[in-house]
Design a protein around this nucleic acid. Sequence first.
DNA 1: AAATATTACGTGACAAGTCATATAATTTCT
DNA 2: AGAAATTATATGACTTGTCACGTAATATTT
Lengths: 169, 169
Amino acid sequence: MTKASERNAARIAARRAREGYNVFSRLPAVYAASRSQGQQFLQLGGGLSIVEWRTLWDLHEVGPMTIRDLSAIQRADHSLLSRALPAMARKGYVTMRRDDGDGRQTIVEIAPAGRAAYDCAAPVMARRRAALREVFSEEEIAVFVGFLDRFEEFLRTPVEQVLKEESAK
Amino acid sequence: MTKASERNAARIAARRAREGYNVFSRLPAVYAASRSQGQQFLQLGGGLSIVEWRTLWDLHEVGPMTIRDLSAIQRADHSLLSRALPAMARKGYVTMRRDDGDGRQTIVEIAPAGRAAYDCAAPVMARRRAALREVFSEEEIAVFVGFLDRFEEFLRTPVEQVLKEESAK
DNA sequence: AAATATTACGTGACAAGTCATATAATTTCT
DNA sequence: AGAAATTATATGACTTGTCACGTAATATTT
């Protein structure tokens, strides 16, 4: 039994190691860890959720915007914001008003409570980014981001095209 | 109005571009795109979900394992598997049995329907990986994975430590 | 041998995303 | 001007992932 389970443990370790070079499999864990760490920092910085933090940050940096604009900056589906914003308005973080010029749009603006929450979270989050810069040089970040760009481009190419080009070889 | 909204559009574009260099903000979108593409491929390859595919692949490669082992290979929480497996067993993809030697463990094994589903999905997924290799050289993948390793290490350092080291500077 | 600690698994509660589809407002085309 | 297409938002349904906590089985210590 010991011999068999040892052999098995070795195979499992080998499999895990091999999958370590598969970017597709690595991504979920890395993302989950990033999200989890972000949540911990935000907990110390006043208890905002990730979506709330991103939204307040963006609104603080660029001023009032539509939901579409927010989702474009955050590279996320608009429905995520569409769902999160009413609760944020209820907490007094933001105000939402229909645009006079274009009745389809909703203009979102940071409100006093949102500004306060931002001021509380911002230093902690800034320190997080600073800590990352201590581990990665600016050049390395540029290379890393370049990989993400290329990878994302690959991910956006239509599936049929990927399959077709492959079989055409 | 045009002037103001143009200025605003420029600010939004600038913000989006700037955030493009923030690895923390890029990750969610890249991961979401990867997942989404993966789901599309799997749809063409018989309709497995991502968790199902990963699990069948692992079981096919290394043989019967415990839930813990599966979650270790997949770098995911055991609860994810714990929840997914009963449905997979119901579909006949896997069998689950209590380990005789250690009554806490559940041994998961691929079953005929699971083998069939694997055989159906595997070629499509292999082509996906091959397509990636056409865009990234082996060396580039190694560098990319190296970045992921280092980033993940950063993400696993305790929050207090990150904050302390920073303020100690 | 009994008490204590650890480990494996299950499960509830939640966050962050997606996609598809519906509706209302605005633009564009004829 | 009216019809048709586009755009912004809302909402339902779903997947992937976490963490916390409970329970049962095993391992360790005294």
